[in-house]
Simulated assay, not measured.
Amino acid sequence: MSPDLHGSSWGALPGGQQLRHDLELSLAYWWPRIFGYHLLQLGPLSADFDSSKCAVKHQFSIYPECGASLRGEYCQLPVKSASIDAVAMHLLLESEQDPYRILREVDRVLVSGGYLIISGINPFSSAYLGKLLPKYQQRWPWNGNFFMPARVRDWLGLLGYQLVHDERLCYHAFMSDWDFPLLLRQWQHHWLPGTGAVYLLVARKLEAPLTPLTNRQRKRVSGWQPAATAGYSGRMKRE
């Protein structure tokens, strides 16, 4: 894991403080609806996030750098299985080589019915321009991988999650010399809502109940019964 792939603070991204504010406003609806004992904040950006309105009181962070509540790798969380009620991860998947592996590890520690909050860069937006300009290609977050929200939703579906919220935020290019006028961003938000620079997904872990099958006994019929055949059981017409 390369440190230069990760953003250590919202201020490292042009418009990042406004993005954090927009995310906090959107999540203000969900925090009182998430209950449990433990909220895990993955990554420094998730740790530097106002989740004080969350009903879960014990909140702690995990990431490899100093400053985390627990230092650890995202693919090997130092947490026992099925012990976390909610996980928040902001702008994290873009910086990882195997994002699906992280989601599987998060799925391991989440309890059934737990919530997973993910935000990431939407490649179908003006934020993708940084990947085309040499000036920004080696900077965070453009030096990482941008995943379509539909792909992230597919990963969550494979893991058995129910998507309860899907939103686009922040119509911003995140480049100081490519900042679009406010009127243009408002027009984009009104007419092209799917092109927001950041996607926000809230999903809930579901598990199908294991219903024991009843012991079905074959009904015995008195009298002679023909034996079942593997082939065609109809009448044959002889020549």
Rank of each mutant, 00 (worst) to 15 (best):
Y29D: 08
Q76D: 11
S61I: 08
H21Y: 14
S69M: 00
C75T: 15
Q59V: 07
W30C: 06
Y74M: 11
Y74G: 05
L42Q: 08
G36L: 03
E24R: 08
C66G: 01
Y37M: 00
D22W: 04
S61P: 06
E24I: 09
R71L: 04
F35L: 14
Y63Q: 04
G72F: 06
S46Q: 10
Y63P: 03
G43P: 06
C54K: 07
Y37R: 10
S51W: 14
G43E: 07
Q59K: 15
H38Q: 10
E73D: 14
K57I: 08
G67R: 09
A28C: 06
L45T: 09
L40W: 10
Y63V: 01
G43N: 10
F49H: 08
A47L: 09
S61Y: 06
F60C: 03
G72H: 07
P32A: 12
F35R: 10
Q41N: 14
L23W: 02
P44G: 07
H38S: 07
Y74F: 15
S51Y: 12
L39V: 02
G67Y: 10
W31K: 00
S69V: 02
L45V: 09
Y29Q: 11
S69L: 00
A68H: 05
F49A: 07
E73Q: 13
L70A: 01
V56M: 08
L39T: 01
F35T: 15
L40T: 06
W31A: 01
I62Y: 03
A55Y: 05
P32G: 08
D50F: 10
W30A: 03
F49P: 10
G67Q: 11
P64E: 07
W30L: 04
I34V: 15
L27F: 06
I62D: 02
K53D: 12
H38T: 01
I34H: 04
H21T: 12
C75L: 09
S61W: 05
L42Y: 13
Y29K: 13
C54F: 13
L25C: 09
L23T: 00
I34R: 04
F49W: 11
Q41I: 03
D22S: 14
F60R: 05
W31T: 01
P32S: 09
A55F: 11
L70Q: 09
L23F: 01
K57D: 04
Q76A: 14
S51N: 15
E73I: 00
Y74W: 15
E65L: 10
A68Y: 03
R33Y: 01
A55E: 09
H58N: 13
E65A: 15
D48Y: 07
L23I: 10
V56H: 03
G43I: 06
D22E: 15
D48P: 08
E65W: 15
H21F: 13
L42I: 08
W30V: 07
F35Y: 12
F60G: 02
G36P: 04
G72N: 05
E24Q: 15
S69C: 08
E73R: 11
G72A: 01
S46W: 09
R33P: 01
L70K: 09
L45C: 12
D48K: 13
H21L: 10
Y29P: 00
K53V: 03
A55T: 13
F60S: 05
I62N: 03
G43F: 11
S61N: 07
W31V: 02
L70V: 12
Y74R: 00
E24T: 14
S51M: 12
P32M: 08
L39P: 00
G43M: 12
W30Y: 14
K57C: 02
A68E: 02
L27M: 14
L42T: 09
R71F: 02
L42P: 08
A68L: 02
C75A: 14
